[in-house]
Design a protein around this nucleic acid. Structure first.
Lengths: 251, 251
DNA sequence: CGCAACATTGAACGGTATCAAGTATGGTGG
DNA sequence: CCACCATACTTGATACCGTTCAATGTTGCG
């Protein structure tokens, strides 16, 4: 009885944890159930410990269900570059089943929880259910599109534009993930972490943030981000949200 | 008779054009044939005209069979960032069938040829042949891994390291594509184009190339690249080739 | 309360950009 | 075959964006 109860609870938690991810996958009820069965429970993680280490083989697909996680590469002299930010619903490092090694660390920005999908189970599913494979492939593509936008940002935009762009993207992605419902919302990233995402120094991030505030575009204060003038922000960043729309949600 | 002959020649050309791509896809003979049937012939292109324009919907998957192509984003004030380089065997902008818009231009660095796969035919194939979808998904992943490496380069490496890293990657990818068989090989990129890939100015690329030469690492002269000291080059770039290995070729 | 992490500020430095020539190089038409 | 032109490469001078170093202020938390 107790076992039965607990497994029921577990199932419900898994479904709840996977919800934003499943919505994005756009599956029929049956495929969705199969995917849920592949889940290995809900795993909570603290802010302090890294989920995957640079150089490790990937054994499972990690679906983020709560919290915010970064994917970061550390160079030999300590320089760091954040190459991705994950919000609930994202698959952290979405790759096809096979022999993969992660070339980045996966470290939380906040505590949270995730739902692991064992790679062998995913392999079965993708072999048998085309819709599941298609969904995961789209997810890979979505993240690649975001990366591409970051590349342009890092390569050719100035600090001011970069920060503006970054905050635009954060605002939209947080909104889509249900983390931001008003122009003002919780944003748990330090200036140092932003610096590592934007390829800037902490000091400069601080200064540019002040200029953005002085210009009346955004206010970032003690973990709360307030978008004062979305339009100007997007213009400054030359931000076009198209790349964030997934295939399914467009059309 | 003539029609028959010409269609035969065509088929052979398509197969030849797709060869490096097919090898990477790792399919059985039957799936391979199906994929070949989805091809819409071989299309030659000159150096001058862009293959896909920024903002255009994607109607076909373009498999590069000869030449070198860049994927580039142009900002409103003319700044450009190259976000990808394609060599023969690469699918240029590998996305799952669906409503996609390209956010970059696809422009050749050299004349060449490609084999288009109509998106509806690809949709059928991927629905019916899991191995085809898996192969394409892996291709997307491969390119995303390369992009990620470029991001780190752009965000946290100095000009010297960036160029070193870029040349390392070029050397390996050209070798894998059969474009480089010796330490010295044809490299048809101007310093201006490299600048756009690396997020630097032409002038600075020029200077850093001279320093690389003075240090005895590489010589780039009139379209010929000579790797003099691979080991030092890779060390300077903190280059780890792992990200270029596809799943299948590793193991 | 006191510590640790984060944010802010100033000064000086440095890597890269920009501007402005000038020099190959290669292709083209006469 | 040469004059010409366009493109790419090279070089120097100068300016600026962003870094680094160093110090101080602030906040939250055990």
């Amino acid at each position: 009885m107790i076992i039965h109860d607990s497994s029921l609870r577990d199932e419900a938690a898994v479904i709840e944890g996977l919800r934003p991810f499943l919505d994005r996958m756009d599956l029929n009820a049956e495929d969705e159930k199969a995917l849920i069965r592949a889940a290995g429970g809900v795993r909570a993680f603290p802010k302090s410990e890294s989920l995957v280490k640079q150089g490790r083989a990937i054994q499972e697909l990690l679906v983020l269900s709560k919290g915010i996680v970064r994917s970061v590469r550390t160079l030999s002299d300590g320089r760091q570059q954040i190459v991705a930010l994950y919000v609930p619903g994202d698959v952290m490092g979405c790759v096809p089943p096979g022999e993969y090694v992660s070339w980045t660390d996966l470290t939380p920005l906040t505590s949270g929880s995730l739902v692991p999908l064992r790679i062998e189970r995913v392999a079965e599913l993708t072999r048998e259910l085309p819709a599941v494979m298609a969904g995961l492939w789209r997810e890979t593509t979505r993240q690649a599109a975001i990366q591409q936008e970051w590349m342009i940002c890092l390569g050719r935009q100035k600090a001011y534009e970069r920060l503006a762009h970054f905050l635009c993207e954060i605002n939209l992605r947080f909104t889509m993930a249900g983390l931001a419902t008003a122009p003002s919302f919780d944003f748990p990233m330090t200036q140092g972490e932003m610096a590592d995402a934007l390829g800037l120094s902490v000091v400069h991030v601080n200064r540019v943030l002040q200029i953005l505030r002085r210009d009346g575009l955004v206010v970032l204060d003690r973990g709360t981000l307030l978008i004062r003038d979305w339009h100007s922000l997007a213009r400054a960043a030359e931000f076009n949200s198209g790349y964030l729309r997934s295939v399914t949600s467009c059309s």
